[in-house]
Computed example of a mutant assay.
Amino acid sequence: MGCCRAAPALRSACTAAVAICLLPVIVSLLLIWLPPLSFAVAVVRFHRRRRRMMTTKRGGCCFRGGDEWSPPESEPEGHRVALLHKYLEEQMELVEADAGDAMAAVLAGNPWAA
Rank of each mutant, 00 (worst) to 15 (best):
V41I: 15
A42C: 13
A42L: 12
A42I: 08
V43S: 06
V43E: 09
V44H: 03
V44T: 06
V44Q: 04
R45F: 08
R45K: 14
R45L: 15
R45N: 11
F46M: 11
H47G: 12
H47C: 15
R48A: 10
R49W: 03
R49A: 14
R49C: 07
R49N: 08
R49D: 10
R50S: 14
R51Y: 04
R51M: 10
R51G: 09
R52W: 02
R52A: 15
R52G: 06
M53P: 00
M53E: 07
M53H: 04
M54H: 13
M54S: 14
M54P: 01
M54W: 06
M54D: 13
M54F: 06
T55W: 02
T56S: 07
T56D: 03
T56H: 02
K57V: 12
K57M: 13
K57S: 08
R58M: 06
R58P: 00
R58A: 09
R58L: 13
R58F: 03
G59R: 09
G59E: 06
G60M: 03
G60I: 01
G60C: 05
G60H: 02
G60S: 02
C61V: 10
C61K: 11
C62T: 05
C62A: 07
F63Y: 13
F63Q: 14
F63W: 13
R64H: 02
G65I: 03
G65L: 03
G65N: 02
G66R: 01
G66I: 01
E68Q: 07
E68T: 05
W69R: 00
S70G: 13
P72Y: 04
P72H: 08
E73G: 12
E73R: 15
S74P: 04
S74R: 14
E75K: 14
P76T: 09
P76G: 07
E77S: 09
G78T: 03
G78S: 05
G78F: 01
H79M: 07
H79N: 12
R80A: 10
V81E: 00
V81M: 02
V81H: 00
V81F: 00
L83T: 04
L83K: 10
L83W: 04
